[in-house]
Design a protein around this nucleic acid. Structure first.
Lengths: 303, 303, 303, 303
DNA sequence: AATGAATGAGAGTTCATTCAT
DNA sequence: TATGAATGAACTCTCATTCAT
C-alpha cells in the first residue's frame, strides 16, 4: 500500500467514523427507521449518494455502529484488566469505567432501546447476543475474583444483582440527567455487593439462579441451538481445510458451508434447502459426525 | 346513552381491545415500523379502512397500547395495596405481582425495546414519563413503609437498587427464558434489600442519591418546563370558564388554548405562532399572570 | 363469488389492460428502463401507488405485457385455423392475419426490439423462447400442408425463407410507414414461396438447414437443456402427486421442486444448492430416474 | 501535429477502441442501462473518471460503438466491391461477407436488440437511419447489376426479399447457434433470388413495392423534414462563410446556427426558441431564402 | 359499520457525470 | 493523463391515511 493510499484509507476511516457518530446520535433520537439516510448524510456533511461510498446499505451502517461502540467499550475494559492492581480495586475501576463509557456513549445506549432487534438481521442479532453473553461470563469470573470460592454458588445471582444495579444507575443518569461521581458510585455499588454477599452467606440462602435453574425451552434452546449450529459450521470449515482434497473441491465445500450460513441468516430458513445442501458432504468420512450433529440441531434428515 | 349505544360502545371497546392485543403481538415481533396497519387490521379480522374507525392514527393506537397495558398492571398492583396484610407481606406480593404482570405482558415489554419513535408524540412521551415518575414515588413510599423512618435518607437509593434488581430479573426471564418461582424470587429480592439496608445503616454510608443530587439541567429542565407549561394551559382553561363573557367568546378562547396545546405537541413547535396565539388573551385581566408565566416558560414575548 | 366481487374483478381486469396498453406504448417509445412507473401510471390515469395494486412490480407488468399480446395474436391465428377453407387459402389468411396483428401491435413489436431479454428474468425469457419455437414448429406444419410431402426435406428452409420475408415486410411497414394491401401482400408472399419451392425441387437443391445441421453446442445445448430441465421438474411434480405418501411429505417434496425451479430462475444458479436440494428425493424409488436425469442435465452429482 | 501528439492520438484511438469493444460485449450481455460506466471502465482497465476523457457521455460512447461497427462492416463490403470479378460472384461474396461480419459482430447485433434508447439522441438515430437507407439503395443497385434491366420494376421487392432472408438466417445463427457454410449459404440465397426473379418475370407479377407505394405520412414526412432541415442549416453555414462581414459577426452567426442545431437534437425542440434564434439572420439578404425555408419546414414564423 | 381503491409523501438505492487533486 | 470522491436526479417500491360507496 502506497503512502497515498494509506492516507486515503485513513480519510476513509475518519469519514466512516464521522458518519457512525452522527448516525448514532440521530438514531438515538428518532429510532432506526425514522432516521433517514438523507438526514444522516446531511448531518455528516455528505450527499445521500456519498453515503453509499462508505456503507453499502443502511443495515451495514447499523452493523458497523454496533461493532464500533462495542469495540471501544471493550477496549477500555481491557485496559483496566491489564492494570496491575488488586482485584477489588480492579472491580471498582471496571464499574466506573463501564459507567463512564456507557454514559459517554449515551446515544448508543438509547439507540439500542429502539428497534435494533427486528431488522438488523440475524447476523448482528447473534453478534449482539454473543457480546452480551461474553460480558456476562466475564462479569461472573470477575466476581469470583473478588469474593473468592465461597461465592461460587452465588455467582449467577451476584452477576444479576450487580448488572441490575449498574444498569439502573446508568439509566437514571441518561434518562434523568442524574449527575454522580463515578468513583464514589463504583465504591457504593461494590459495598452493596458486599452487603448482599455477606447476607447470602450468613443466611446460607438458597441461590436464586444456578446452572440447574430451568429455562423455557423455546427461548433457551433457540439461542443455544443457534450458537451451536454456528460452531458446527465453523468446525466444518476447519475440517474442510484439513481434507486431502483438490483445491477445487475444497472451495466447493466451503461454498456449501457458506450457502448454509447464508440461508440460516434468513428470517425463515428453509429446512429442505439446508437438508439438501448438507447432503453435499456425503461420502466425506471426516465430515460425517459434524453432518449428523448439524442434522440433529436443525432437525433435518441426513440424506 | 341508550341501550343500543351502550351495547355498541361495548362492541367498540371489545374490538379496540382485540386490535390492541393483536397489535401488541405483532409490534413485539417485528417492531413498530415493520408492523403495518394492513397486517394489524388483518390479524384483527378487519379491513384497513375499518381500522381507522377505531383509532385515528397508528400513533394513537400506539398510545392506547401503552395506556392499556399500564392500566392493567396498575390495577393489579392496586388490588394488592387494598389487601389487609402487613407491609412486608404486601411488599413481597407487590414484587411478585409486578414480575407476574410484566412477564405475562412480555410482548408489551419487548415491544418497548423496539422503536417507539419519538414520533409517537409529546403527549405519549409525557404520559410515559409521568407514569414512571408516579411509579418511582410510590415505590419509595412502599419502601418507607417496610424499612421505617431510619431508611428515609436512603429511600432514593433503595428504590434504584430494588428497581434495578427487579427489572434485571424480569429481563432475564423474558430474554433468556429463565423460569423462576415468583414468590421465592420476591422473597429473595426482599432479603437482598434487607442485606443492603442493614449494610447501609451499619456503615452509616453516605446516600448515593438524595434530593440534593445535581441533575443535568438540559434534561431535567426540559422535563419540568413541559410539565409546567401543561399546567399553565390547564389553568388557563379553567380561568376561561370562570370569565364573565359571552359563550362565543369563551369558545374562541378555549379554541386558542387548544391550538397552543396542539402546536406544542409537534416536534418543533413554532414559537412565533404561539406568541401570536397567546396575544389573543390581551385585555383579559384575569389571564394576564398566566399569560406572562407562559411567555417566561416558552421564552416568547408578551405582545 | 358474489356479483359485487365479479364486477370488481371485471374492473380490475379492465384497469390492468389499460395499464398494459399504455405501458406498451410508452415502452415502445422509450425502452423498458426509460419508461418509469410514474409515467406509466400517469398515462393510465392512476397514481404511482395505485399501479402497485394491479402489478406487484415492474417486472411483473412486463411479463403480463408479453403474455397479453402473445395471447391475442395466438387467438387470432387460431381463429383462422378453425375456418373451413382449403390449405392454400388458409395459408394466405394466416399470413395476412399475422401481418395485420403485428402491425396493429406495432408498439409491442417495437418494444421487443428494446431491452426485454436482459432484465425480465429467466422465466419470461423461457416463455418467450418457447412461444417462438412453438410458432416455428407450427409454421413448418402449415407449410407441409400447403406444399405436400415433396417439400418435407425443405421444410426448415421454407420456414426460414417465409419468416424472413414476412418479418422484413412487417418491419418496413412499421419502421418506414409502408402501406400495403395485406391480402395482396399475403398472396405475393405465397407466390414467392411457390417460386422457391419450384426452384428447389427443379434443381434438386441440397437443403440449407436440416435436422442434421450442426448447431453451436454452447447456445443450442443451453436452450435445449433449459427446456429439458423444465420438463423433468414438471414430471417430478406429477410423480410426487402419485406417490403413496402423507400429505405433509408431498407438500415438502413439492417445495423442494419449487426451490429448485426458483434457483434455476436466477442468473447464476448455484449448482451445489441444486445438487443438495435434489438429494431430498433420495430413497424415493419412483423419483430415481428423474433425479438421475436432472443430475445429468445440470452436470451435478447424485448424492 | 507533433510526433508526440500523433503518438498520443494513436494511444487515444487504441484506448477508445478498447473501450468500445469491452462496452460492446458488456452491453450485449446486460443491455444498455444495466451496463454501468463503472463496469465498462473497469473492463477497459480504466477509472470511471478516465472514461470521460475518451467519451463525453454514455450516449456518445453508444454512438461511437454504432459508428465503429458500421464502419468496419462497410469497409469489408467495399473491399469486395473493389475486387475484379463478375457481378454474380461479387453478389455471392457480398452476401457471405455480410454474414461473416454480422455473425462475427454478434455482440453488436445482439446489443441492438437491447434498449438503444431513443435517448441516444436524434443525431444517432439519424445516422442510423441514413446508413440503413444507404445500405438499401446500394443493395438495389447490386441487384440491378446481377439481374439486369428487366429486374428494374422489381428492385425494391427483391431487396426486401433478399434482406429478409439474409437477416433471418443471420438471426438463426446468432440466436440458435446454427452453423452454416457461409459460401454455400450465399449461393443458396442467390439461387432462391433466382427462383423468385424467374417467377416474377414469368408471371409478369405486379410489384409489391414501387416508388409509388404510399407511405404513411407521419413517419415518412418526419424523416424527410429532418433531413431537409439538416441540409438547410448546412447551407446556411456555407452562406455565412461567403458573407462580406467582419469575423466577429461571422462567428456570431455560426454560433446561432449551432444553437439551432443543438436545440433540434433535443427530444422536444422548443419552437419559440428556434423562431427567436433565426430572427438573428434578419437583415441579411443572402439568408432570406434559407430562413423562409427553415420557417416553412419547422412551422415557425419569420420574425 | 365497513370496504378497499386510491393517494402521495418519502424511503433506500443506483448511477451518469463533475471536479479538485 | 488519470483518479476516485462527491453530487444529485431519478428510480422502484411501501405505507399511513382518505374517501366514495
Amino acid at each position: 500500500m502506497t503512502d497515498r493510499s494509506v492516507e486515503r484509507e485513513g480519510n476513509m476511516q475518519e469519514k466512516k467514523i464521522t458518519i457512525i457518530e452522527r448516525a448514532t446520535e440521530i438514531i438515538a433520537k428518532k429510532g432506526y427507521h425514522a432516521a433517514s439516510i438523507q438526514e444522516i448524510a446531511e448531518a455528516s456533511k455528505l450527499s445521500k449518494g456519498a453515503f453509499y461510498l462508505y456503507f453499502k446499505s443502511k443495515d451495514e451502517l447499523m452493523a458497523e455502529i454496533l461493532r464500533y461502540h462495542f469495540g471501544l467499550i471493550t477496549e477500555e475494559i481491557e485496559k483496566v484488566d491489564r492494570q496491575d492492581i488488586n482485584s477489588r480495586e480492579k472491580a471498582k475501576l471496571r464499574l466506573s469505567t463501564m459507567m463512564r463509557e456507557l454514559v459517554k456513549r449515551g446515544n448508543f445506549i438509547v439507540m439500542q432501546r429502539h428497534d435494533i432487534d427486528s431488522d438488523i438481521g440475524k447476523e448482528m442479532e447473534l453478534f449482539f447476543l454473543e457480546e452480551m453473553e461474553k460480558g456476562r461470563r466475564k462479569t461472573e469470573l470477575d466476581l469470583l475474583d473478588v469474593y473468592g470460592e465461597v461465592s461460587k454458588p452465588y455467582l449467577k445471582d451476584l452477576r444479576i444483582l450487580q448488572e441490575g444495579i449498574l444498569f439502573q444507575i446508568i439509566g437514571d443518569m441518561l434518562l434523568h440527567g442524574l449527575i454522580l461521581d463515578l468513583d464514589k458510585t463504583a465504591a457504593y455499588i461494590l459495598e452493596r455487593m458486599d452487603d448482599m454477599v455477606e447476607g447470602l452467606l450468613k443466611r446460607k440462602a438458597e441461590p436464586l439462579v444456578t446452572d440447574a435453574t430451568p429455562v423455557s425451552a423455546s427461548i433457551f434452546e433457540k439461542e443455544m441451538k443457534e450458537r451451536e449450529v454456528k460452531q458446527v459450521l465453523e468446525r466444518m470449515q476447519i475440517v474442510i481445510l484439513t481434507l486431502d482434497a483438490e483445491i477445487q473441491e475444497v472451495q466447493e465445500l466451503q461454498g456449501v458451508v457458506e450457502l448454509i450460513q447464508e440461508e440460516l441468516q434468513k428470517k425463515e430458513p428453509r429446512k429442505l434447502l439446508i437438508q439438501g445442501l448438507s447432503a453435499n458432504f456425503k461420502g466425506i468420512e471426516e465430515m460425517d459426525d459434524l453432518r449428523r450433529e448439524l442434522a440433529r440441531l436443525l432437525d433435518i434428515k441426513v440424506l
